[in-house]
Amino acid sequence: MAEAPPRRLGLGPPPGDAPRAELVALTAVQSEQGEAGGGGSPRRLGLLGSPLPPGAPLPGPGSGSGSACGQRSSAAHKRYRRLQNWVYNVLERPRGWAFVYHVFIFLLVFSCLVLSVLSTIQEHQELANECLLILEFVMIVVFGLEYIVRVWSAGCCCRYRGWQGRFRFARKPFCVIDFIVFVASVAVIAAGTQGNIFATSALRSMRFLQILRMVRMDRRGGTWKLLGSVVYAHSKELITAWYIGFLVLIFASFLVYLAEKDANSDFSSYADSLWWGTITLTTIGYGDKTPHTWLGRVLAAGFALLGISFFALPAGILGSGFALKVQEQHRQKHFEKRRMPAANLIQAAWRLYSTDMSRAYLTATWYYYDSILPSFRELALLFEHVQRARNGGLRPLEVRRAPVPDGAPSRYPPVATCHRPGSTSFCPGESSRMGIKDRIRMGSSQRRTGPSKQHLAPPTMPTSPSSEQVGEATSPTKVQKSWSFNDRTRFRASLRLKPRTSAEDAPSEEVA
């Protein structure tokens, strides 16, 4: 009796068929016929556990003709996506030579605008209408194809895939403007070719909807975003200037109206006075309405000098805001240009540092100066060695804690006790272990408590650290204090090793 083939788990290929790579489910599931010992083939499952149809090819690079078809379809799909992405970037994010197409579109729109203006002049109306009709045909074809291509290429973005995504893309403001202008152009052409009475009025009214094509030149909205950011950044200043200017306008108009309503027919109503105030304070000055009385002229002159300053403030605020924003954008561009080279330089330096163990090129690091100058660790070890030599091999803490019996001779020589300023008595072995921070803190506390006492003391002649007598400086308080830590004499004296002298005989010792 033939044995059933062993159940295979995992992703390994079956024996005897090495080139074939078959994806098997996580659990080997066989058909009921196979479990019962029949000759049925096992049921194939996909990666998600769903059964595959009987005629479906197995996924994998070596699955025969199905694999070749899959490779061809995958390559075609990649080319399709690449083309779609390229078209989308050309239309929505132009760079380099892609601006040539947008310059061509701008020339078409500008020519249409010029011809629309010439069509309103009686001398050039006939020729402009003929040229404009031909140009409209060209623009309908160009913009119609462009609109379709834009909607198709938007599928390269995830949020615009599918018919719902394309509809979302078509609802964008600039796409809506394109659609309105396209419909208006078709209506103008249809009305112009019919030759009816309505054609002339339709051409004159709907052609100027094509002015909206100038708005579509900035599809990404960079200028509007820049203007919005400047207004938002200086909103408080703008609101303040406009508010005060509006108050000056209504008060000036009302007072001039009261002064001129009886003697001047131009100011017969408050609305006429508001019109005069707006034209005057905005420095336009049509001259259609002028005050005639001396009181009205004085009020107009005073409020004009006051109001023009507030009406001119928004222009200066926006101008300075634009300058600052442009400078910030230039700085951001320079930062973006330098970020990648800086990151590459840091990575290269780290690779060199991690692979080169000698690091002989590091001549400006802490390790280099640590090898030249005595390190703080060596100074600490030197302090501890000196203290243990004086205390008979014991550390200062051990000397303080060691009990001394009554009447027993002390094995240590008597030492002079010292007192730290602002604290109780402490171990004499710690007097010379006072660090730089303690010395600086002690000097600052003395300056806070009594700076007036220092200038009363007789001035001391500054001497070099080499000429100081070591026996005289029994305490860190003898170090000359200065008002600034930048004094080199104080810094050098604080680094010197001060020996400890006994109370009975204080021989001067120098520590090399």
Rank of each mutant, 00 (worst) to 15 (best):
A2S: 04
E3K: 10
A4D: 08
A4G: 05
P5H: 09
P5A: 05
P6T: 09
P6A: 12
P6Q: 12
R8L: 12
R8C: 08
L11M: 15
L11V: 05
P13S: 07
P13H: 09
P14T: 11
P14A: 06
P15R: 09
P15H: 08
G16E: 07
G16W: 05
D17G: 14
D17H: 05
A18P: 09
A18V: 15
P19T: 04
P19L: 10
R20H: 07
R20L: 09
A21V: 06
E22Q: 03
L23I: 03
V24L: 09
A25T: 03
L26H: 15
A28D: 03
V29L: 07
V29A: 05
V29E: 13
Q30H: 07
Q30P: 04
S31G: 15
S31I: 05
E32A: 06
E32D: 07
Q33P: 04
G34C: 13
E35D: 12
E35A: 04
E35K: 04
E35G: 13
E35V: 04
A36P: 06
G38R: 06
G40R: 08
P42L: 05
P42S: 06
R44H: 08
R44L: 12
L45I: 10
L45F: 14
L45H: 07
G46S: 06
L47P: 05
L47F: 03
P53Q: 14
P53S: 12
P53A: 14
P54R: 12
G55V: 11
G55C: 15
G55R: 12
L58R: 13
L58I: 15
L58P: 15
P59L: 12
P59T: 13
P59R: 08
P61S: 12
G62C: 12
G62V: 10
G64A: 14
G64S: 11
S65L: 09
S67F: 14
S67C: 09
A68G: 07
C69R: 13
Q71L: 06
Q71E: 11
R72G: 05
R72L: 13
S73Y: 10
S74W: 12
H77P: 07
K78T: 12
K78E: 15
R79P: 10
R79C: 06
Y80F: 10
R81L: 15
R81H: 08
R81C: 09
R82S: 06
Q84P: 01
W86R: 03
V87L: 08
N89Y: 15
N89I: 15
V90L: 03
V90E: 04
L91V: 11
L91R: 01
E92G: 00
P94S: 03
G96A: 12
W97R: 14
A98V: 05
A98T: 05
A98S: 04
F99C: 12
H102N: 08
V103G: 09
V103F: 05
F104L: 04
I105V: 12
F106C: 10
V109D: 00
V109F: 10
F110L: 03
F110S: 09
S111I: 05
C112Y: 06
C112R: 03
L113M: 09
L113Q: 12
V114E: 11
V114A: 15
S116Y: 04
S116A: 07
V117A: 12
S119F: 11
S119A: 09
S119C: 02
T120P: 09
I121M: 13
I121S: 06
I121F: 07
Q122L: 01
H124Y: 09
H124Q: 08
Q125L: 07
E126K: 03
E126V: 08
E126A: 06
E126D: 06
A128D: 06
A128S: 04
N129D: 11
N129I: 08
E130A: 11
E130V: 06
C131R: 03
C131S: 06
L132F: 15
L132H: 12
I134N: 10
I134F: 12
F137L: 13
V138G: 12
V138M: 10
M139L: 15
I140L: 07
V141L: 11
V142A: 03
V142L: 14
V142I: 11
F143V: 12
F143Y: 09
F143S: 11
G144A: 12
G144C: 08
E146A: 00
E146Q: 02
V149F: 12
V149G: 03
W152L: 02
W152C: 00
W152R: 01
A154P: 01
G155V: 00
C157G: 15
C157W: 13
C158G: 08
C158R: 15
C158F: 15
R159S: 15
R159P: 15
Y160H: 02
G162V: 01
W163S: 02
Q164L: 04
Q164H: 05
G165V: 00
R166P: 01
R168H: 15
F169I: 01
A170G: 04
R171T: 13
R171I: 15
K172E: 11
K172T: 13
K172R: 05
P173R: 02
P173H: 02
P173A: 04
F174L: 14
C175F: 04
V176L: 09
I177T: 03
I177M: 04
I177N: 06
D178H: 06
I180L: 06
F182V: 03
V183A: 07
V183E: 02
V186A: 08
A187D: 00
A187V: 09
A187P: 09
V188D: 10
A191V: 12
G192D: 09
G192A: 00
T193I: 01
T193A: 07
N196H: 04
I197L: 06
I197S: 06
F198L: 05
T200R: 03
S201C: 01
S205N: 09
M206R: 03
M206K: 02
M206L: 07
R207L: 00
R207S: 03
L209V: 08
I211M: 12
I211V: 10
R213S: 11
M214K: 00
M214V: 10
M214I: 12
V215A: 08
R216L: 14
R216H: 08
M217T: 03
D218Y: 04
R220L: 03
R220P: 02
G221C: 09
G221R: 01
T223A: 15
T223S: 12
T223I: 11
W224S: 01
K225M: 04
K225Q: 08
L226V: 00
L226Q: 00
L227R: 00
G228S: 14
G228A: 13
V230M: 00
V231G: 01
Y232C: 11
Y232N: 07
A233G: 10
H234Q: 02
K236N: 02
L238M: 08
L238V: 02
L238Q: 01
T240N: 03
A241G: 01
W242R: 01
W242L: 15
Y243C: 01
F246C: 02
F246V: 06
V248E: 01
V248L: 03
V248M: 07
L249H: 00
I250M: 04
F251I: 11
A252V: 02
A252D: 02
S253Y: 00
S253P: 00
F254C: 01
L255M: 06
V256F: 00
V256G: 00
Y257C: 01
L258M: 10
A259S: 03
A259P: 01
E260A: 01
E260V: 00
K261R: 02
D262N: 10
A263D: 04
N264I: 01
N264T: 02
S265P: 12
D266E: 03
S268A: 08
S269T: 04
Y270D: 00
Y270N: 00
D272A: 03
D272H: 02
S273A: 03
L274R: 00
L274P: 00
W275L: 01
W275C: 00
W276S: 01
W276G: 01
G277W: 00
T278A: 03
T278M: 05
I279F: 00
T280R: 00
T280A: 00
L281M: 07
T282I: 00
G285R: 00
G285D: 00
Y286S: 01
D288N: 00
D288E: 00
T290A: 02
H292R: 07
T293P: 01
L295V: 04
L295R: 03
G296R: 01
V298I: 15
L299P: 00
A300D: 00
A301G: 06
A301P: 01
F303S: 03
L305I: 04
L306R: 01
L306V: 13
I308S: 06
S309Y: 02
F310V: 15
F311C: 00
F311L: 05
F311S: 00
A312V: 00
A312T: 03
A312D: 00
L313M: 07
P314L: 01
P314S: 01
A315V: 02
A315T: 14
G319R: 00
S320F: 01
G321C: 00
F322L: 09
A323P: 01
L324V: 03
K325T: 15
K325N: 00
E328G: 01
Q329P: 03
Q329L: 11
Q332K: 07
Q332P: 00
K333M: 00
H334Q: 00
F335I: 11
F335S: 01
K337M: 00
K337T: 01
R338G: 00
R338L: 01
M340L: 05
M340K: 09
M340T: 11
M340V: 04
P341S: 03
A342E: 01
A342T: 01
A343D: 01
A343T: 05
N344I: 02
N344S: 05
L345P: 00
